[in-house]
Design a protein around this nucleic acid. Structure first.
Lengths: 129, 129
DNA sequence: ATAAAGTCTATACTTGGTATAGAGTCAACG
DNA sequence: CGTTGACTCTATACCAAGTATAGACTTTAT
């Protein structure tokens, strides 16, 4: 399989696949005689794993940690549980931050109607304080 | 006032102040005989304005739009209202996305307890699907 | 006079990709 | 056999919003 096929199958762009390789997320892959990357089903599965993790907003480093763990199946998975718990807590914190933002922005939005000038704009006065 | 004083007063780092200048957020400033940047109260007020906007997660471009508007006080402020409404809607969308993530992560976290091996880790099995 | 602190420019680094340029490779068609 | 088109290769630059250096210069304090 060549990179274009993999891109179609996984939904990752060609550049993204090469980017993941450079970041160390795709282990030792083969090259054809013409120096083309050659992929097998394992790589596709790995890319889908990465994609799933990224859709959960994990960082590349977090994904790498998870993938490294997968290669040591007999170890305890407690570090994985810790990683996910930390990531979840980061998401919760970010949601709280954004909710505070949302309230401020709603207050701002309601402090101005359509018919004013810049000089009298309630939003700018709010920001200027 | 020199850049170090401004940094202390505003809480922006020196590099950030120079960065904002390069991005066009701080208009034509003076230089001393020794080529040091010279600031006045107006600049400090502008930096605090920028800081407030950034704390609301506005982009540099959004802040620039707002600052450009401030220099045209007789125009209608409807574009400002639109900008804030758009930004608010972006924040709301992001909160919704993060809430979906949060649910997924909570499900994952609850699918594994501390005592398993990597092989049997509920989280990895979840991600592997 | 000299040392310390402050400032200058320019550049590289971060994250997670995206978007080129210019060269090389491969398959099909005439 | 040639050549066209599709594909791939590497290397580099770009985005946001800064942060962090190096090496040179200026100012301040002793």
């Amino acid at each position: 399989m060549k990179i274009g096929d993999v891109a179609k199958t996984t939904g990752c762009s060609i550049q993204t696949i090469r980017f993941y390789e450079k970041k160390g997320l795709l282990p030792e892959l083969k090259r054809s005689s013409g120096n083309y990357r050659v992929y097998d089903k394992g790589t596709i599965e790995q890319l889908l794993f990465i994609k799933q993790c990224r859709s959960l907003d994990m960082s590349i480093m977090e994904v790498k940690t998870l993938m490294d763990s997968r290669s040591r199946p007999d170890q305890s998975c407690s570090n994985i549980n810790t990683l996910i718990a930390k990531h979840l807590s980061d998401v919760i914190i970010r949601i709280e931050e954004l909710n505070v933002l949302k309230s401020s922005l709603e207050n701002m939005a309601s402090s101005c109607d359509q018919d004013k000038t810049i000089r009298d704009c309630g939003i700018l006065n709010y920001l200027h304080t």
